[in-house]
């Protein structure tokens, strides 16, 4: 009598999560095939370019050059799945109550800083949390907003005449393309941190995104407020 199975991730969330992974990969891949045809962005400080997106070796290694048409074909095919997956995800969060686990509140920013300091081994104490800590809440809500922003900036580039109000709102056609590009970089950054954190969190945590459950030690005293009315192993 020493363990309990905790339901961490509903079936819908697990599917939507895993489906979004190849979809995002394909959107980024096809996006880079498109970007290559006018690869103009870089990181500049005082007019000096520190890094150009992307170096020649990057294109050569991945076989990217001269595949613009293919990139456009894939981008405008998988965009529908990316969009629909995202819409279902948001609707599911809203109606299932799962939003309670990932939405931040104003105090989250302070706690997220503490979580970050804890993860960097600067402070010992971890702030109180539910399924996710406040840094995760900000990241997971943020990544949904990034998805929405990618759709919006993408539409502004895709239909700059019919949606010229939107393109103007984003600062014009060239700015919208720049924003769309940097959202992609943010996604890559999110992905790297996410995978690193999952690796650090360990197997049991990773497995819970596949099975939905995690075996947890029974707490000596489970606070009344955190117990669900429903008991027994949910199937």
């Amino acid at each position: 009598m020493a363990k309990q199975l905790e339901k961490k991730h509903p079936l819908a969330i697990r599917w939507l999560h895993w489906i979004s992974f190849p979809l995002l990969t394909l959107m980024i891949w096809s996006g880079i095939l498109i970007y290559w045809a006018n690869a103009i962005y870089g990181v500049k400080i005082f007019g000096n370019e520190l890094f150009h997106f992307f170096p020649a070796w990057f294109y050569e290694t991945l076989g990217i050059p001269f595949r613009l048409a293919e990139g456009l074909q894939l981008h405008f095919f998988f965009m529908w799945f990316f969009l629909v997956n995202g819409i279902i995800y948001v609707l599911y969060l809203a109606f299932s109550g799962e939003w309670r686990a990932i939405l931040p509140v104003p105090g989250s920013v302070k706690r997220a800083v503490l979580v970050t300091l804890h993860d960097l081994h600067i402070v010992k104490k971890l702030p109180a949390q539910g399924k996710y800590n406040d840094a995760q809440r900000i990241a997971y809500t943020g990544v949904i907003l990034m998805g929405a922003a990618s759709v919006v900036t993408g539409l502004a580039i895709y239909k700059p005449l019919q949606l010229s109000w939107l393109t103007n709102l984003l600062g014009g056609y060239e700015w919208a393309r720049w924003e769309h590009f940097w959202l992609m970089i943010l996604f890559v950054g999110f992905f790297i941190v996410h995978v690193a954190q999952v690796a650090i969190a360990g197997w049991s945590n990773f497995r819970s995104m596949i099975t939905g459950y995690e075996a947890v030690d029974i707490e000596t005293k489970i606070p009344e407020s955190s117990l669900n009315e429903k008991e027994g192993v949910a199937v």
Partner: peptide, 8 residues
């Protein structure tokens, strides 16, 4: 809310 099984 948390969703915990019976003790095992």
């Amino acid at each position: 809310k948390r969703d915990l099984s019976e003790p095992l």
